[in-house]
């Protein structure tokens, strides 16, 4: 909080600026129709994920062998699978898993990558060692790194999130480093240093808030690619296992019946696409809204 006795400013200028930042961003974002569509889809999906037990007509593992392999009809809008489980309910419950995988793995990547990137940018003697290590990790495509980690840790949701998260660390480290490097040279950082702020305080209160817009954009797009990576790994069998209704695992199960039951490979894929599309248009919209200079 800045106090200026001469001007007798009483309100907290920091909170006012934050308000302005939010309303400015929102005002610009609102004009982007596509981004708003993405935001609405996303909010709906999050609500569906939260209220899955109330929204879904059946449980995700309610087997009814008599009603197996039924094509989409009134009773089962998206049909049933080989165990007679309602695909609509499974897709609804699947949104819980994909959202969790996306958010938590990006959380892991952002924490680890953010610390590494900020340290590398702020303490220049650490820059070389950290970034060369990051370069080595970047040389392994993220899908292969994630597969290797998932294969080593074993299947399961927690391990999948770790695998996807770790393979995304280099990407976030680079983004945060680049952002911190540009902010670091600004006068207010020097000002903070001159009044004796500690390094930790400068990084957390002066530098990171000013990098926030870039980080938000990358995190939004990162969740989208984490959902794709997570479902790809589950498709290959290195992620979430039956009977959990992961979208990629559902596609993998439906692959066997592709010649006879098309809906089993179409519907879970549409769900992935919808979620990822919403996140991508929102991310693009946020980039334009948060940094109008970049807009075409």
């Amino acid at each position: 909080m800045i106090q200026n006795p001469q001007l007798n400013i009483t309100q907290n200028p920091h909170s006012k600026r934050k308000n302005g930042w939010f309303s400015d961003t929102w005002r610009r974002l609102r004009k982007n129709r596509l981004a708003i569509v993405g935001l609405i889809i996303l909010i709906l999906m999050i609500l569906i994920a939260i209220f899955a037990p109330w929204v879904a007509p059946y449980g995700y593992d309610d087997q009814n062998i008599k009603a197996a392999m039924i094509f989409p009809c009134k009773e089962y809008p998206f049909g049933t699978d080989n165990f007679g489980r309602d695909i609509l309910s499974r897709v609804i419950y699947g949104s819980r898993i994909s959202m969790q995988v996306g958010l938590i793995s990006v959380g892991i990547a952002l924490m680890a990558g953010g610390i590494l990137g900020a340290v590398a940018a702020y303490f220049s003697h650490m820059d070389n060692i950290i970034m060369r290590t990051i370069d080595v990790f970047m040389a392994i495509p993220d899908m292969l790194l994630a597969i290797a980690i998932a294969a080593s840790l074993g299947a399961g949701m927690r391990n999948l999130m770790i695998a996807v998260g770790v393979s995304n660390v280099p990407r976030f480290a680079r983004v945060v480093r680049a952002a911190v490097l540009t902010v670091k040279e600004q006068e207010f950082v020097e000002a903070a240093r001159s009044i004796g702020s500690s390094n930790l305080r400068i990084i957390t209160t002066d530098i990171l808030p000013n990098c926030l817009s870039q980080i938000i954009v990358q995190a939004t797009l990162g969740v989208a690619s984490a959902i794709i990576l997570g479902s790809s790994l589950s498709y290959l069998g290195f992620g979430i296992q039956a009977p959990l209704p992961e979208w990629g695992a559902m596609l993998s199960a439906g692959r066997v019946y592709i010649r006879t039951h098309w809906y089993m490979t179409v519907i879970p894929g549409l769900a992935i696409m919808l979620a990822v599309y919403a996140l991508n248009v929102l991310g693009d919209g946020l980039r334009d809204a948060l940094d109008p200079r970049l807009k075409n």
Partner: peptide, 9 residues
């Protein structure tokens, strides 16, 4: 936004 494996399918 489409996963590559789903495009293939």
């Amino acid at each position: 936004s489409m996963p590559m494996f789903w495009q293939g399918l």
